[in-house]
Design a protein around this nucleic acid. Structure first.
Lengths: 192, 192
DNA sequence: GCAGGATAGCTAGCGTTGCTAGAGTTGCGT
DNA sequence: ACGCAACTCTAGCAACGCTAGCTATCCTGC
């Protein structure tokens, strides 16, 4: 009785992940507006209602994709930060890596940072990958800096603004590098 | 023949504006997801298809609301800037006014800056109100500053990031004032 | 003054969306 | 072998943006 149950739960977990990766691939290939429950169901070769036995709705699927992506972003930032040990260079590298992620994976970025979400961000039940990603910004400042979290928030906000305005064509995407240099130059030497 | 035609066109123009203000009011009261073509038609007391005789589609209505709002934002920023004549204070005031606008009129802000748009921003056919709003940021720097446009872009990006991340609950809305102070302190004294 | 034509607005409906109720089938456990 | 429980599918609902096509109205030219 227990062996069979285990196999079933294992298969179910696999299908759960299958749905997430299918949604992700579809979004990355054609954008989130192409991710409909019907197309997604067709892609995983099940009928629509099985999606709802795994997720409460489409929003929950997007959320699952986003949380996966937070882990990747954190890893990407970490790699960039550990490349240059000096704090100034580290900050620059992390910021560049962040913008890279945003432009190279626009669909994932949307799911993480612009689509409506009820994921708690600066909170007790914040998902660990999210914490880790934010922590990479914080880690660019010296631990004795009492306001490093504030700095991280502002830098992150600025990068997010640049990323999303460039993506929607509201600022010219070419100038991104120049803006990045200016931003880091101004924010790197902190008054504390 | 001509008088009647003029009256008709006048009435038509009034209805055109009526649709825009109705869409705006509905969005500000209940959010853009509540602005459906049916509800909007009901509100202006016409049937759905008349909307499409004024606008090519729902997107065009949102765009019209946004362009109206750009004028108001520009005026709001201008008022703030002319309050304190010194460049440092002016920048601070303009930035604070921008965030004010974003938090007090979230629906308008969404239409202007986050909903997909094909309005040209830094372009020849950029709508004048939009130019004016951006110009308020530029005007906070001395005219002989060759990179003032770059500065304005970065500041605007940072403010936009703060506004939108706070609105979606991704950073705590309380710390907005503190972040603003830090941002302006770091960006105000430019290296040129 | 009156027919003819353009125009304006409505009803009705199409295709698509997210989501769900209920039937039907499969397969395990006793 | 049988009954129950879990699972999956078909079919359909309400709401969405948008449009075709009929009807009525009103201006225009004779």
């Amino acid at each position: 009785m227990s062996v069979i149950r285990e196999r079933r739960e294992r298969e179910r977990a696999q299908r759960h992940q299958l749905i997430i990766t299918a949604a992700r691939e579809l979004a990355e290939a054609e954008g989130w507006e192409a991710v409909t429950t019907r197309r997604l169901a067709e892609r995983v070769e099940y009928s629509q209602p099985v999606l709802y036995s795994h997720f409460s709705g489409k929003d929950a699927i997007v959320r699952a994709v986003a949380i996966d992506a937070f882990g990747e972003l954190a890893a990407h930032l970490r790699r960039a930060r550990s490349a240059g040990p000096e704090p100034r260079q580290a900050l620059h590298a992390v910021c560049r890596a962040y913008l890279e992620f945003a432009t190279e994976r626009p669909a994932l970025y949307q799911a993480m940072f612009v689509m409506p979400t009820d994921v708690k961000f600066a909170h007790a039940e914040t998902p660990p990958p999210l914490r880790a990603a934010f922590g990479e910004f914080v880690a660019c400042f010296r631990p004795d800096n009492a306001r490093r979290e504030l700095f991280a928030e502002v830098i992150w906000s600025a990068l997010h603004g640049m990323a999303v305005l460039a993506d929607s064509g509201r600022i010219p995407p070419d100038g991104q590098e120049e803006r990045l240099d200016f931003l880091v130059a101004q924010l790197a030497d902190t008054p504390n």
